[in-house]
């Protein structure tokens, strides 16, 4: 057992993957000497060389496009997109090529490419540095989309994502990069596609992923003081989705609140609400409620605390659910 920050846990996971498989490559802007703007790749180029930890030109489409080519040659590239809002120049390569090329070949080729994206707000950043673009990618068949929320998961999930023969979009909650926790580097961890009940409860099921898991756990502690028992599920994988774990919980509690930073309208929570309504209709005591960002561009950082779901907004939504 060792204590690691989330960013260091991913670093250690990448290191392990680079050690285990000579075909694994790390590539992106500033991932070499600098170790990435969040230091997630710190020290990797020094130990594995410039051919395996590649500082790329500053062009996101180029990063993903060349990663696809490297994968076609048998490599397993792990790409870093520096910030969530900078993934869009690469969206074409991700959506039209990375997601679809294996199908185009009728299964002859595989593209084991991981696209790491630091996501979410709460760090007082300028525009384009605080976004939650997951729904764009969960909507694209051919991609797997996962989001880690804590150091232990981050360590195993990054390695599982690299081992996957499918392309994986890997979201990292940037405001949790510095959170520390004990990590058992020997533990096999859950399967990549499995959700995890991170706190058991009776009254309301809270569904979250990435940065909002911690917020929900804090909400559950606060609610407990009011005699309310919240069950918190960390979805971990958004596509595929562990519907069995979700359904099992909501059928017990009869209530569900979805929490994410992304805008609620057409956000990932909409999919969850629709699915839960279908699968748990006779068990529900209240409609599935969602709390998240507004249908606006991400606001200037002095306003982000109003935009992001916090303890109070989450608890307010829990109140509304219980009031039905």
């Amino acid at each position: 057992m060792t204590t690691l920050s989330l960013s260091k846990a991913i670093n250690e996971g990448l290191r392990k993957a680079l050690e285990d498989d000579p075909k694994v490559l790390v590539m992106g802007e500033d991932v070499g000497k600098l170790g990435g703007v969040f230091r997630v790749t710190d020290g990797l180029q020094k130990d594995f060389g410039e051919d395996r930890v590649i500082d790329t030109p500053l062009a996101e489409s180029g990063i993903i496009g060349t990663a696809i080519g490297l994968a076609l040659r048998g490599y397993r590239p792990v790409c870093e997109i520096q910030f969530d809002g900078f993934v869009f120049p690469a969206a074409d390569q991700i959506i039209t090529q990375l997601a679809k090329m294996p199908l185009r070949s009728l299964g002859a080729i595989k593209l084991p490419v991981v696209v790491r994206i630091p996501c979410g707000g709460g760090i007082g950043a300028v525009e384009h540095h605080s976004e939650s673009p997951e729904a764009y990618f969960t909507h694209t068949g051919g991609l797997r989309v996962v989001a880690c929320s804590n150091p232990a998961d981050a360590y195993t999930m990054i390695q599982q994502a690299i081992r996957s023969d499918d392309p994986v979009i890997f979201f990292e909650p940037k405001r949790r990069y510095w959170d520390k926790a004990d990590v058992d580097v020997e533990a096999p961890g859950l399967p990549l596609e499995a959700a995890k009940v991170v706190r058991e409860g009776r009254d309301v099921t809270m569904l979250a992923y990435g940065p909002m898991v911690k917020t929900c756990l804090e909400a559950a502690i606060a609610a407990e003081e009011d005699g309310r028992s919240l069950e918190v599920i960390d979805l971990r994988s958004l596509n595929p989705l562990d519907t069995a774990t979700i359904t099992g919980s909501v059928r017990r509690t009869g209530r569900c609140v979805v929490v994410h930073e992304a805008p609620v309208f057409n956000g990932f929570g909409a999919e969850l609400a629709a699915r839960i309504t279908e699968s748990c209709f006779y068990h529900l005591e209240a409609p599935v409620l969602r709390v998240g960002g507004f249908s606006t561009p991400y606001p200037p950082s002095r306003l982000e605390e109003h935009y992001l779901p916090d303890l109070d907004r989450v608890l307010d939504t829990v109140d509304r659910s219980l009031a039905f």
Binding site: G65, I68, G69, L70, L72, R73, D92, S105, A108, I109
Partner: peptide
Amino acid sequence: DPAEHNFHLYTIVIGSQTLHAVGYAMG
């Protein structure tokens, strides 16, 4: 199968394959 004849699949999105080729060459 692109590997069978070392001839990749047709790419319809204009220019996308140039990056794939360069990545392949880097491999």
